Simulated scan of single mutants.
Amino acid sequence: MNSPITGTAAGVPFTALPPAEGEGYAPLVVTWHMLDAPRSDAAFAAALPMNDLPAWRVHLGMPMCGARTVGDGPEAILELMREDALMSFLHPFVRQASEEFPDALASLRARLPVDDGPVGVLGGSLGGAVALRILADTDTPVFAGALVNAAIRIRSVVDLFPGEYTYDAESAEVADDLDFVAKAGRIADRAPLLVVSGERDHPALHADAFDLVEAVGRRAELLSVPELAHPLAEEPGIEPAPQLPPAREVDLGLTAWFRDRLAERG
């Protein structure tokens, strides 16, 4: 198996895994990792490598994570969470990762032998909100999307933080914009979607997964994984680690999903 390729694309760190087979140009699947373990592009690549997929899998680093950690790392992130869970923490992560994607994609196309066709997108936890934003709010051609324990409604994620969050007009507008069940029609028009949800994930996130699949309709499928909690890897989740059994089940499901969608694409 070929070794991972690491680098930066328009300033965004990445870990790229070459296709399982064949030579020349191949399709591209882009991922965004969780803020829980695995919380770096390299760790996410180890947790969900999709090794049997005949496509490049490029795992992008989220802002302020891994190589882009600033200040004293975890403490700086905790301070943002304490300041304002939505407006200082969750929303800036999703906004920056979404906004930097077009330039990162152009850089990847110039650097790697990927074809110029539609891409696949995959996001875990808060990275799922990034993948959903690419689907719902951009015109980037996408052949298939997938989510794992995703932040589908940001209000459900905010409710996981200690204390009661008080919304004002601005934060309520942001929360509405990051409610992707409300954008299900747009997502259904864009690409087929696999929603992977751990049965041991936070109950509200698990419920949101069911709601999104129902709202998207026939172009969405649900994969419910019995032993999967919210994280996909053990702490600290920064460096690549051996794949856990629930993550392997997710990995197999994702591989089959994207392989079948590529076959449909022709």
Rank of each mutant, 00 (worst) to 15 (best):
R82M: 05
R57W: 09
I134W: 07
F143H: 11
D36Q: 10
R68W: 04
M34Y: 02
A129G: 06
P38G: 14
W32I: 07
A150E: 01
A42T: 09
Y167T: 09
P74I: 11
R111G: 08
E79I: 00
V70N: 14
A85P: 09
D103E: 11
V70T: 15
E99L: 14
F143P: 04
L147Q: 00
A55M: 13
W32Y: 13
A144M: 12
E79T: 09
A136V: 00
G124T: 03
G71I: 07
V157Q: 14
F161M: 15
L108T: 02
P162G: 08
V94M: 11
A37S: 08
D159I: 03
N51C: 11
R82T: 03
I152P: 00
L60T: 05
G120T: 05
A37F: 03
D115N: 14
D159L: 01
A110K: 11
V114T: 09
E100N: 10
E75C: 12
S40N: 04
S125F: 10
V130C: 00
V119G: 12
W56V: 08
T140P: 12
V70R: 15
L86P: 01
G145L: 02
L78Q: 12
G128K: 00
V58Y: 13
V94R: 01
G127Y: 00
G66W: 04
T69A: 04
P102I: 01
T140Y: 08
D139N: 09
L160G: 07
D41I: 04
V157F: 12
Y167F: 15
T166I: 13
D139P: 07
A110M: 10
D139L: 11
P113S: 02
A110Y: 04
R39T: 10
I152N: 00
D115L: 06
R39G: 05
W56T: 06
S88E: 08
